[in-house]
Design a protein around this nucleic acid. Structure first.
Ligand SMILES: [Zn+2]
Ligand SMILES: [Zn+2]
Ligand SMILES: [Zn+2]
Ligand SMILES: [Zn+2]
Lengths: 145, 145
DNA sequence: GCACATATGTTATATTATAACAATTTATAT
DNA sequence: ATATAAATTGTTATAATATAACATATGTGC
C-alpha cells in the first residue's frame, strides 16, 4: 500500500473515532481504493477493485460507501467524470474546486475556503442562500501541454 | 409557444445562418423543448416531449441534438443534475456558472466572463492551461427560503 | 436479553449515455 | 445534371451509472 493511502486511512480512522462514527470494512476498502488511484475512479472500477478484497460485492455496497465517505468529506465526486477522488484539503469544506486534465485525466484539487467575490456577489444579488459549491476547471495539466 | 422560446429560437436561427450551419428540425425541436422548460430538463424527458413532435424518436436523436446545441453554446449541461438549460448570456462563453435551488430545482445562470482571480491564480501556480470551466452553486433560491 | 438504530446482503430495475452501421439528405465539384 | 463527398438521421442494441425495495445482520444503550 502506498504511504499516501496509509496516511489518508489513518486520518479517516482518527476523524471517525473522534466523531464516533464507524469506518467499517467496506468503507475503509472503498476509501483505500479511491486513495490508491492516481486518477479519479468510477464506481464500477471501484467495484471491480473491491471484488479482490471482498466476496462478490454489488453496486449498492460501493454506492453506500461513497455516500458515507462524501458525507464525511473524505472524498469528492468529479461531476464531469462521474468519478471520485480523495480530499486534499486538511479541513472539512462545502466548496470544491478541481483542475481536470482533459488529456491524461489527472485531477488536482485547488481548494479555496471561500467562494470568490464575483460569484458571491451574484448570490447576494439573487438573494440565493448558498449551501455548497463545486468548480471544475478543464484544460491541460503542466505535463500534457 | 412562450415568447421567450420564440426569441431563443430566433436568435439561434440567426446565429446558425451567420455561421452557415444547420439548425435542423430535430435540433430546433430539442432547443425549443429545453427553452420551454422552467427547470433544467433531462435527456429522457426531452425525448418524451420530442415524441409529441416527431414520430417515435430515439435517444441518439436527442443526444445528437444536445451535442450540437452545446457546441454552439445555445445550451448548457448542469452536471450535478444530468440536465440541460438554455444559455442566458448574450455571447458565446467557455465558462459556465449556475445557482441551483435544491428545493424547487430552478437554475439561474450567473455568467462571469472571466475566471475569478483566486481560481486563476491556482491555475497559474500549477501551470494549468485552462480551456473551459463550470461552477455550480447549490442552495436555496429566494422563493424557497 | 430486548428494543432500537445502523449497516449490510441481495435481487431487481431505473436512469443516463454511446457504439455501430445503414439509409438519407445536403453540399460540392466536375 | 451527375457523380462524389460530407453531414445528418434512423435504427438496433448495449454500455455505463445509479437507486429501489426488502431481507438480514450487527452494533448500542438500557
Ligand atoms: Zn477537498
Ligand atoms: Zn495531464
Ligand atoms: Zn451561458
Ligand atoms: Zn427554489
Amino acid at each position: 500500500m502506498k504511504p499516501n493511502v496509509k496516511k489518508i486511512l489513518a486520518q479517516a480512522e482518527h476523524i471517525c473515532a473522534q466523531k464516533d462514527i464507524r469506518l467499517t470494512e467496506s468503507r475503509r476498502h472503498v476509501l483505500s481504493i479511491i486513495a490508491g488511484s492516481s486518477k479519479p475512479i468510477g464506481a464500477y472500477d471501484i467495484l471491480k477493485s473491491l471484488s479482490q478484497k471482498m466476496d462478490n460485492p454489488k453496486p449498492p455496497t460501493v454506492y453506500r460507501a461513497i455516500e458515507f465517505l462524501q458525507a464525511q468529506g473524505f472524498i469528492h465526486r468529479i461531476e464531469s467524470l462521474n468519478a471520485y477522488v480523495t480530499c486534499d484539503a486538511h479541513h472539512h469544506h462545502t466548496g470544491s474546486q478541481f483542475m481536470v486534465c482533459d488529456d491524461c485525466g489527472k485531477v488536482t484539487e485547488a481548494h479555496l475556503c471561500d467562494l470568490p467575490t464575483p460569484l458571491l456577489d451574484k448570490t447576494k444579488k439573487e438573494n440565493f442562500k448558498l449551501s455548497s459549491w463545486n468548480v471544475e476547471l478543464h484544460g491541460l495539466c503542466a505535463g500534457c501541454q
